[in-house]
Each structure stands twice: as structure tokens, then as C-alpha cells.
Design a protein around this nucleic acid. Structure first.
Lengths: 117, 117
DNA sequence: ATTATATTTAACCATTTGGTTAAATATACA
DNA sequence: TGTATATTTAACCAAATGGTTAAATATAAT
């Protein structure tokens, strides 16, 4: 009865540690435009290639992953836009953080810390 | 192989629309300290009480729900602290939002909009 | 003591999830 | 053309998820 919401897919995608690790790999790519091929992405994980392939599909469906096919190589890169929507949803609860002293301050600090990098 | 991470439970808890709706109900309580009893919480949902009970357990395990038992009534209230951790994890990807023009600005706006309320 | 209310637990079921191995597909290379 | 590489799909499996109804538990009220 509750209509489909893209947040479902975003939060679900982020709930798995392997997928979060994949996102971290993608974010640490020094040439973000290029993207990582699937095999390289899979290397750090003690898991079969098809397993990683499935995880990538989940990230893809959540809109967190962009594939740019280049011959037989699939170059994967990050699109963090859905995370932004997730963070915006969470931000509605800011009032409840305020009660926990220092949390909000810390949060804003996190968000402005790299402003001048 | 990947060690347990509380973010797993937080993101998983947030991935279900019913649970997000429950959190919204909790957040809209005018007397947050009092908390909502389970039956009242369940009323808006086209779902059995045990189903809601299970959802509450998921939220509880994720640390998003605080129960204060008062006789046979369980008063539920929100603890948004784990959301804060989730948002902090997401914040690490801020650099990837910047590419999408306006997103970061909008985000910071969201977070400072109610500063003067 | 009985009955009603609030909530959870138990048992069950269908679907999804996260993994596997084996096979298929598509491209590159010799 | 044949072979190696990159990746997905298929088929399978165990465990988790999200729901149900029926029963159990705990408290309150009469």
C-alpha cells in the first residue's frame, strides 16, 4: 500500500558492508572520470566475481553506480546523488540530534571541514 | 570477513517505507518525552499488530527506538543518534555531490534553514 | 476471580538476499 | 580462426525479510 520510494533502494544499497566498501573504492579513484573496471573492483574482496556483479547491479539500480562500457571492459564510477536524497531525508530529523549535545555541531563541522581544501 | 558495522543495521532499518513512516510518526509527537504506545503507532498502517511489532524490533535493534515500559503500555520514542552516524558516513562523499551543481548548496541550506526557528 | 487491553512470541509462508559454481556472451588478441 | 579476457546470466542454496493468524504473557479494570 505504501508507494515505491527511491529511498528504499538507496538505503538498502547502503546497508551492505561490501557495497559500502565498493563505493569507497570508487570514491578513492584518483581519476574519477575513468572509472574502475569490474575485475579490479572485485580484487580486494574475498568473494566470487558474480557476487560482486550482483552487488554492482544493486548499486546500479539504486542509481549510485554509473557504467561506461568500453569494449569488454565496464568502467564503473560513483554517482552520489541518491546519497544526497538520503541525507536530505535524514536531515528532517535534525531536531532530534540537537538534544544530543554537540552532535549537530560535529555534523556541520564535518560538512564544512573540507570547504577550504 | 567484513566485520559487523552498526551502519548495516541503521541503513537496513531505514530502507523500509513502513519503518520510515513509523519514525516520522515518532518525530511528529508533540510531547516527545511521553512517547507513543504501540497500538496508536500501528493504527495508520494497513498491517497487523505483530507486523508492526516486528518493525519496532528492527528499529529497536538499530538503536533508533527507545522503549519506556509503563505498565502494559510500551511508550516508544525516537533516538535519531544512529541516523547521525549514517549521515556522517554519507558526508564523506560530499566531494561527489559538488559536481552536481547546487546540490551541496541545497544541502547546507536544509541543515541551516531551521537554525533560527 | 473474570474479563478486557496491550503487546509479544510462535509457527508458518512467500519472496528477497547474498552467496556459490557452471555456462553463456562479448570483445580482444595471436 | 582459435584462444584468452571481461563480464553477466542461470541455476541453485541457505538465511533473512516482511507479512499472516493463533496463542501466550502481562497488566488493568470490574
Amino acid at each position: 500500500m505504501v508507494k515505491y520510494n527511491p529511498l528504499d533502494a538507496t538505503f538498502a544499497a547502503l546497508s551492505d558492508p561490501t557495497r559500502r566498501a565498493i563505493l569507497e573504492c570508487l570514491s578513492q579513484e584518483n581519476v574519477p572520470a575513468a572509472g574502475l573496471m569490474v575485475t579490479s573492483l572485485a580484487k580486494p574482496f574475498d568473494m566470487s566475481l558474480p557476487a560482486i556483479s550482483k552487488h554492482l547491479k544493486v548499486l546500479d539500480k539504486a542509481g549510485l553506480l554509473v557504467r561506461k562500457r568500453d569494449g569488454r571492459i565496464h568502467r564503473c564510477s560513483l554517482d552520489a546523488a541518491p546519497m544526497w536524497e538520503a541525507a536530505r531525508w535524514i536531515s528532517e530529523y535534525r531536531n532530534y540530534w540537537e538534544n544530543q549535545l554537540g552532535s549537530l555541531a560535529g555534523f556541520l563541522e564535518t560538512f564544512s571541514a573540507r570547504e577550504e581544501e
